[in-house]
């Protein structure tokens, strides 16, 4: 009994340690920059201000970056869902020459890490003169085979009876896909959608090298760029306000959709 109580105590302590850095950043973001310059320990004196957030709203960059991140993340999510659903249905239900071979090739794509393709990808977009554009930020993410794999598995799990009943009801292949099977894949769409959105929102390397124009930064890259000039920052408090502003939306979304997010991430890893 005592052993389990000790373990529980340790876990609670660890949870507190998980929270401390976040609280620290939150506290710093609420402090006057000048006061922080002299001593950050002044956070304990209880004089807080919303000035950093006021400055943040006066600075258009962050909103521009958030808008970019939203466009890229939603665009990629919509694209992945569409392509993966069509391909998943095709691989799971239809017969065409070379189907099995193609599916194996796509599965092999799962093993290719970003590092192995990113240099050539960057070259290709350079040749096409497409860097610093939304298509450049979205397109590479659409090629991830995970979604196709997931949707194929899901379509395969739907009883073929449904298709057959619909065939007897005179439905076309596309009607079967669109009206009957797609609505049944909503749980998988949710999983794949959340996972894709999260990955797109947090993606760092590709937007870092593709979006070099400050106006095309995603939020991740934008926060990185302000961090790079750590020394010449407009103030620690202001920087921390940015961090809070960048992190808080994700945390709030997480608190609301925790169940689905955890499922999506665990499902993606456990493939």
């Amino acid at each position: 009994m005592t052993r389990s109580r000790l373990a529980t105590g340790l876990v609670i302590l660890a949870a507190v340690l998980m929270l401390v850095p976040l609280l620290w950043v939150l506290a710093l973001s609420l402090k006057d920059n000048a006061e922080l310059m002299t001593d950050t320990a002044s956070v304990f004196n209880g004089r807080f201000t919303l000035e950093n957030y006021r400055n943040l709203f006066g600075n258009g960059d962050v909103f521009r970056w958030i808008a970019n991140s939203l466009i890229v993340s939603f665009g990629m999510t919509a694209g992945v869902l569409m392509l993966a659903s069509l391909a998943g249905y095709g691989f799971a239900r239809l017969e065409f020459p070379g189907r099995n071979l193609l599916f194996v090739v796509v599965l092999l794509g799962l093993a290719v890490p970003e590092q192995a393709v990113i240099i050539a990808r960057h070259q290709m977009f350079s040749w096409l003169g497409m860097h610093n554009s939304y298509p450049a930020l979205i397109l590479p993410g659409l090629s991830a085979p995970f979604g196709v794999f997931l949707m194929t598995q899901y379509f395969r799990a739907i009883p073929r009876d449904i298709d057959e009943a619909a065939l007897l009801d005179g439905a076309s292949r596309f009607t079967i896909f669109w009206k009957l099977l797609l609505p049944l894949t909503i749980p998988a769409q949710a999983t794949l959608g959340i996972f894709t959105f999260l990955s797109a929102w947090n993606d760092y390397w590709w937007p870092l090298i593709s979006a070099t124009n400050k106006d095309m930064f995603t939020l991740t890259v934008g926060i990185a760029s302000t961090q790079m000039n750590f020394a010449q920052t407009e103030g620690l408090g202001f920087l921390m306000a940015q961090a809070v502003f960048a992190g808080a939306p994700m945390l709030i979304v997480y608190l609301f959709f925790q169940k689905y997010i955890v499922q999506a991430v665990a499902g993606a890893a456990g493939r």
């Binding site: 009883p159 009876d161 449904i162 057959e164 009943a165 619909a166 065939l167 007897l168 009801d169 005179g170 439905a171 009957l180 609505p183 049944l184």
Partner: peptide, 18 residues
């Protein structure tokens, strides 16, 4: 199948779930 003028009752019914 849809043009054969037949209707079928399946073993597991195959009702459209949604």
């Amino acid at each position: 199948p849809g043009e054969r003028g037949v209707a079928m009752v399946f073993q597991h019914y195959a009702l459209y779930p949604h």
